[in-house]
Simulated scan of single mutants.
Amino acid sequence: MYVLLREFEGRPAATAGRGKDPVNEAMIRHWCEAMGDAHPAYAGPDAVAPPAMLQAWTMGGLSGHADRSSAYDELLALLDGAGYRSVVATDCEQEYLRPLRPGDRITFDAVIESVSPRKTTKLGTGHFVTTRMDVQADGEPAGTHRFRILKYAPAGAPKREAAAGAGAQPAARRPRPVVNRDNRGFWDGVAEHRLLIQRCTGCGTLRFPWLPGCNACASPDWDTVEACGAGTVFSYVVMHHPPFPAFDPPYAVGLVELAEGVRMITNITGVPYDKVRIGMPVRLEFLRVDEDLELPVFRGSEG
């Protein structure tokens, strides 16, 4: 199996791809509003794009890119066929070579850089797939974006090779959250039905999601405040495709603005997906997904 996977290394995932839009002020503004980033460098006549937007200018949306190679889809299909049907994004690395400014035309090339040997993680057993995208702006190198996913069989779920002829498969479970030293306090709060927000003890800034340091003053010191549970839908999407195991599309995923002022991505429950609206009041509740996973979600009301 791994011999077949290694054959994909070095194959193009996209060749001579073109960004669907030039770098523009509207997308920069939307990004900064969503991220809560009011840095003056991102506005005005001499604006530059936030560096972390590097990938945003290359994204193809629902219609995709005409220049996309079939190799990446073939690789994922091979992993699916072997029973590694679950997927989680694990990390990305970006290198910035020059600022992007409104009017820059973006082109890119992407390659399947590596496929790992089979690895066993807390989520399950599978293979890490890394792609590298080289981004150009008006023909000049602008940056490199590496993106890594894990295609895996959830822990306790038999892979196809081992389960052939074994009859019905157990129901798929949602991916497990990655709990580490930086966010363990958040998940400890969830276990107690408390939604905890980090607060910098240096400048008092609230932050969510949890981070190891303050993005306002860089202090590493923090404590927590408990959210009151009230919020409103700041933005949302309705997921139709692609379908994932343990999820039943269509369903609404919302960016909820908490009464405390921070925002979090969560499921919207209690109303049909097509009744969710921006500005809708929502209320915190805790959803038992399975025997050992409970998640904070927000319930809306059609009234």
Rank of each mutant, 00 (worst) to 15 (best):
G10H: 00
G10Y: 05
G10F: 10
R11Q: 13
P12V: 05
P12L: 02
P12D: 05
P12Q: 06
A13R: 02
A13C: 09
A13T: 14
A14E: 05
A14R: 00
A14N: 04
T15V: 15
T15D: 00
T15F: 00
T15R: 09
G17Y: 03
G17D: 03
R18F: 04
G19W: 04
G19N: 03
G19K: 00
K20G: 09
K20Y: 04
K20P: 01
K20E: 04
K20Q: 13
D21Q: 12
D21N: 09
D21K: 12
P22C: 03
V23D: 03
V23N: 05
V23H: 08
V23K: 05
N24T: 12
E25L: 12
E25T: 10
E25A: 14
A26N: 13
A26D: 14
A26T: 14
A26K: 11
I28A: 03
I28V: 13
R29E: 14
R29D: 14
R29I: 08
W31P: 01
W31A: 08
W31E: 09
C32M: 09
C32T: 11
C32W: 08
C32I: 10
E33N: 14
E33Y: 04
A34F: 09
A34H: 01
A34I: 09
A34M: 14
A34C: 06
G36C: 07
D37S: 00
A38I: 10
A38L: 11
A38M: 10
A38V: 14
H39S: 11
P40M: 10
P40N: 04
P40R: 08
A41Q: 09
A41W: 10
A41Y: 04
Y42W: 15
Y42D: 05
Y42N: 10
A43C: 08
G44R: 09
G44L: 11
G44E: 13
P45S: 13
P45Y: 09
P45N: 15
D46F: 06
D46E: 15
A47Y: 01
A47G: 01
V48Y: 10
V48E: 15
V48C: 03
A49T: 08
P50D: 13
P50K: 07
P50L: 08
A52G: 01
M53V: 06
M53W: 04
L54M: 06
L54I: 00
L54W: 02
Q55G: 06
Q55I: 14
Q55V: 15
W57D: 06
W57I: 05
W57H: 00
T58K: 03
T58P: 01
T58R: 02
T58M: 08
M59L: 15
M59V: 15
M59G: 12
G60R: 01
G61L: 06
G61Q: 00
L62R: 14
L62E: 15
S63M: 11
S63E: 15
S63L: 10
S63D: 11
S63N: 05
G64Y: 01
G64D: 10
H65W: 07
A66Y: 04
A66S: 13
D67Q: 03
R68L: 12
R68V: 13
S69W: 04
S69Q: 01
S70D: 07
A71F: 13
A71R: 05
A71G: 02
